[in-house]
Amino acid sequence: MSNKPLVPAIDGWHTMDAKPHLIGSQCSDCGTYFFPAQYQYCRNPACDSTDFLEVQLSRTGHIWSYTNACYKPPAPFVAAEPFEPYAIAGVQLEREQMVVLGQVVTGTGVEDLKVGMPMELVLETLHETDDDIKVTWKWRPLPAGTYPETGA
């Protein structure tokens, strides 16, 4: 087991705790959410607000669609050798009414997924460098009956 520190692959896009959340923003005027976070302009055409709050997005949602990557993507992706295919899901967040893409956790393939399936956000290694382990958000199926009623 490596003693390298865990660091986010992309700074500031998610929390680093045991029940991680994506870090987005919300327009103070119209309530529109943004991921990645956006603090300069509101993309709602009916809103010209420049006032935004940092928010933690819902860490659970339902699969909008899914696929996998059977071939190694080009750089900047850093692939393990040998390359292991991974699944990818677009997950619909109810409160935010948006779909967020991400890899699905290692060990869960497309055969384990269905449109509408409840998922939760977790952190997993994206790749290692000489100095640290870069982690990112991934989606993991929620066991039946554990989807939180609040959607948060």
């Binding site: 669609s65 899914y66 696929t67 996998n68 990557a69 993507p73 677009g90």
Partner: peptide, 16 residues
């Protein structure tokens, strides 16, 4: 691309 999402990913999501 850094997160491993290529062009075929999007096409496949729509196909599914």
């Amino acid at each position: 691309f850094y997160l491993g999402i290529t062009n075929p990913t999007y096409f496949a999501l729509y196909a599914r």
